[in-house]
Amino acid sequence: MRIPCPYCGSRDAHEFAYLGDATLTRPDPAASDAAEAFHAYAYLRENPEGAHREYWYHANGCRRWLVVTRNTRTHEILGVAFARPSTDEVPA
């Protein structure tokens, strides 16, 4: 499997570390339902069969966290973006 890193180009997936579901947002720790929200955030997963937005970290490359959209049934990569978008960080 190859991941088209927006910074480094197409690289073997072995260069990246995987974290999983990128649709989750860290809840507000001050909210009254924080305990329940953090439980869902840390433990519950949609785990879809099909398109999946997921975090990959280019550990053996540019060290950028990426959000990769990938089909979990076919492994086809549908899209890649930096987790932290920033115009000034794309190489010339």
Binding site: M1, A13, Y18, G20, D21, N47, E49, H52, E54, R70, T72, R73, T74, H75
Partner: peptide, 9 residues
Amino acid sequence: YNSYAQRGN
């Protein structure tokens, strides 16, 4: 990585 493909790399 998440997968339902029943095959690896």
